[in-house]
Amino acid sequence: MPKPIHEADYRQLMEVLRQARLRAQLDQAAVAEQLGVPQSFVSKYENGERTLDVIEFVAICGILGLDPSQEIAVIGRRPRLRPTAKTSN
């Protein structure tokens, strides 16, 4: 199965969350406790095994002291791969 075109962006965003967690001197268990989820939840999104929905992302940003809109804006400024238009002959 082909990889989604947004995979690199998503991995970058998850790395931002992981680095922010480390800067905040929190382990995965501490973040999970504040979210009310198992530690494996944090591990899986940081490792790309699980995706986050917007509500989860905002909650995690709150715990880590990040502004969600600023973090998304960084991703929005990255160059995008554009699907090539099919030409008809």
Results as ranks from 00 to 15, higher is better:
Y45D: 06
A85S: 13
I5M: 08
D67S: 09
G48C: 08
P68V: 03
G48I: 14
G36R: 12
Y10S: 11
S40C: 02
P2H: 05
A29P: 00
E71V: 15
S43M: 03
I55K: 12
E33G: 08
L22E: 14
A29R: 05
C61Q: 09
V58E: 15
S88T: 04
Q70S: 13
A73P: 00
V58G: 02
R50A: 07
L66A: 02
P68K: 02
F57I: 05
L22F: 05
R80S: 04
G62F: 03
P2L: 07
S88D: 05
V74Y: 13
L64I: 09
D53M: 11
Y45N: 11
G65K: 01
C61N: 08
L26N: 05
R11S: 02
Q39T: 12
D53K: 12
A20H: 03
D53P: 15
A59M: 11
G36A: 01
Q25D: 15
Q70C: 08
M1W: 06
S43Y: 04
Y10N: 08
I5Q: 08
T51S: 15
E56V: 00
E56Q: 15
L52A: 00
A8F: 09
Q12G: 04
E71D: 00
A30N: 06
R18Y: 08
R23A: 10
L26F: 14
I55Y: 10
G48F: 06
E46W: 05
L35V: 01
Q70H: 07
Q19P: 01
I72N: 03
A8W: 06
R11H: 09
F41N: 03
T51E: 13
I72Q: 03
R78W: 10
V58S: 12
S69Y: 14
R23Y: 06
P79S: 14
A29H: 08
